[in-house]
Write a protein that binds this DNA or RNA. Structure first.
Lengths: 208, 208
DNA sequence: ACCTGAACACCGTTCAAGT
DNA sequence: ACCTGAACACCGTTCAAGT
């Protein structure tokens, strides 16, 4: 076959196929990715910088949807909530992807942009610069952990009900993993926002 | 050689060697693990249930140090803080390990034990059973995320200082990644505890 | 420029053979 | 019970050859 008159694959097609594999199978490999695109393994290297390149492609593709239009007009608490929720949603939509993302440095402009917006809101809320960066880390940590939780294997907490009666009973109450992860995220977000509100020196802003 | 009169390797030795490889190189493989133990690859399968088995071994080994002796006598807030800090410390001591741990279900008895203790303290603090399980998830999410942060690659936040002047300046203030991750963990822990205290219905417990 | 086939070094797992 | 060597199926990457 050699070189076709028009390329058989594109970077977009690669990203899409990779996400498909990851969503369905939890991971991807170069042979499988090539197979899904109807092409030979080595062809991929004409479009993408190896396996890591594929992952970077997938990252930007997934974070592109991270748009929060009106956060500037909202009071800090609502703005922060909206930003954080948007971040979590874009990750939680592809939970299997998170374990792949965390092993590589973030270089995407979109993500830097997002972080800058968070910092902006935190400073507006009255946080000092150092505290703002700490808070950014806390948010990042929590969102990443919560997104991981969505995709973590259905917990075979084979709890010994006799040794841990209350723990076993509490677990009984929970619905499936995904719903629990989602509820926990909402709860944790409220806690963090409450904690932050309490931490702020003086209520320099009040809305209703 | 065949079977030696006394085994050449033990599960303990395997765990130790694996941790060594992970700490030094960020990962391990069965051949390298065998090499470090002076033994052939296939010998490992006499002691351990494949690669996943090694990871489980390493997990329990790392969490064994997770001992918080006197949490029962402490007021709920201090007990919770001590338990969470101990968990984080045991993970943060081997940051490269965390990405390997998160991909497998927890089956270790030690971890279940730890979770049960957290639940116990949360119920004692006055949280409902459902909320307690949510809170357990929040704690798990945050600790995992924060532990990941410790080992994540030194952030090449090549921030455009003209586009994001305040973000760039705030980042300037930060020390190295490890110190930032640690400070952020402490700050986030306080926020979560504050938020939880605020969330509790009635102060059923007060100590000084 | 872009696809191919062959080649290389690496990986996880199994299993009969040996004591 | 426990180590070995050989075998298998899989992986990521490179590169000369072809158009």
């Amino acid at each position: 076959m050699a070189r076709p008159s028009s390329p058989l694959i594109t970077r977009e097609a690669i990203a899409e196929a990779a996400i498909g594999l990851i969503d369905r199978a939890g991971d991807f490999s170069m042979p499988k990715l090539a197979g899904a695109l109807g092409v030979r393994q080595s062809s991929l290297y004409n479009h993408v910088n190896g396996r890591e390149g594929v992952i970077e492609l997938v990252r930007t593709r997934c974070i592109e949807d991270l748009v929060v239009p009106n956060y500037r007009e909202l009071p800090w608490r609502e703005a922060l909530r909206a930003l954080i929720q948007a971040y979590w949603r874009s990750l939680a939509a592809h939970p299997n992807l998170v374990p792949l993302l965390i092993r590589q440095t973030v270089s995407s402009e979109v993500v830097i942009d997002y972080y800058a917006r968070i910092i902006e809101v935190l400073l507006r809320a009255g946080l000092g610069e150092e505290r703002a960066v700490h808070m950014l880390s806390v948010i990042d940590d929590f969102v990443l952990g919560a997104a991981l939780d969505v995709g973590s294997p259905e917990v075979a907490w084979s709890i010994n009900a006799e040794r841990y009666p209350r723990f076993a009973r509490a677990l009984q109450l929970m619905p499936n993993r995904e719903a629990r992860a989602s509820d926990a995220f909402g709860f944790g977000l409220d806690l963090i926002l409450d904690g932050l509100a309490r931490h702020l020196p003086a209520p320099s802003e009040r809305t209703h």
